[in-house]
Design a protein around this nucleic acid. Sequence first.
RNA 1: GGCCCCAUCGUCUAGUCAGGCCUAGGACACCGGGUUUUCAUCCCGGCAACUGGGGUUCAAAUCCCCAUGGGGUCACCA
Length: 417
Amino acid sequence: MEQDCSYNWLFARNNDGKLILRIEDTDQVRSTQEATQSILDSLTWLGLDWDEGPYYQSQRLNIYQEYVEKLLKQGDAEYIDDPEKGRAVRFKIRDVITDIDDLIHGKIKFDTALLEDFIIKKGDGFPTYNFACVVDDGLMEITHIIRGDDHISNTPRQIALYHALGFDLPKFAHIPMILGEDGTRLSKRHGATSAVEYREKGYLPEAIINFIALLGWSPGNDQEILTKQEMIEKFSLKRVNKASARFDTVKLDWMNSKYIRELPAEQLSAKLHYYIQKAGFDTTQLSDTWLKKLIELYKDRFKTLSEFTTQTSPFFRNQIEYESSAVEKFLKIDGASRLISDTYAKLKELENFSIQEIEDCLRDITTQHGIGFGKLAQPLRVAIIGKSASAGIFETLELLGKEKTLNRLEYAMKTFL
RNA sequence: GGCCCCAUCGUCUAGUCAGGCCUAGGACACCGGGUUUUCAUCCCGGCAACUGGGGUUCAAAUCCCCAUGGGGUCACCA
């Protein structure tokens, strides 16, 4: 659904066309407020703007009724009664050509004899999808219909309606669907995939758009990262694939991290705010400049915004968790005790606790002990972060601050050494 | 099952329309190496595909047919 929208958007913008947003809410049970709101939110978040609408089909009932009557009068439709469902109207298929001249697939032939009459107005008075969208597309003078190729099979029905209603045929472009990682259908069944859910997971809208666009389309060269502007300029239905693609989260993650790395700390900070809140971190004591430094330090280490909080949690929390394997490997070893307590004492003497000061201090310690720098950095890292991997040790100490650093060293000495 | 769509590395794809430039290019992932205080980033290198079978042609990933496989659709859902 997001892909349908983005291709429509790219196509409209590429051609200086007009994009009309229409909410097809003709199912009184399934069309909830939440559902349409989620669509609107997703489009807004992704930055896919439209020029007209949204129109709600549920508010255009009288229009559809007009055309139902027209078909009845022409003899192209008939009433059918059902004791439970009420009086509905059924369209009668005539022998017309319903072949599709698809912009992506070329000619698709159908045997009209195989088509069956179908309902256009339901017992509850609402139009069916196939009918409402043909009436709307006709009245709104839609020139191009770009949608998933799961719609191919009801296109002949719609073409028959166009003929009966006397509307000009639009051009159809059936784009391949996106399959889930397991190769089965994504949209309806997996339910997920509202773009809003990807926001929640910490993906950037630019990354999502870029990734989705490349699932079924390519600019024709080897470029993988494209701005919206570049995509608009290069987009062409001719370059859209016929085969369906699988959604590969691993590649999306890579692309997202690429976009994160290119974002200035200032903007990242604004976006990260929500996830920091969500993680429950207390930020009242923390300054903006401090946060920006932390972001800068971790920028190329996380793939999603929410991952930032899991990686930097030792900077926010007072209690940290220690990875037992890291503790075993770097703290519970010969000499660690002496080394850490010595480091503790020396760090305590520092006045500014600046990166430069810290570096000088730590380098001195390693020369005094006659060891390589890694022999100090690793135990120290584990003692203050709890893990054997983190950003640079000097920056880490500085950002953590003198007080927290000393507290953690103290705790580590008491607990593990 | 009927009808429809589709088919290049594990994945996304370039190449297919206008057959030779393809000993099939790129990206993600993976593997190896380098840089580094660890991890990540970054840099270098590697692995890896034209679904199968028939045609057409001097020549086929590219055109045609069949088979196989995958997907879609058969609602008073959209």
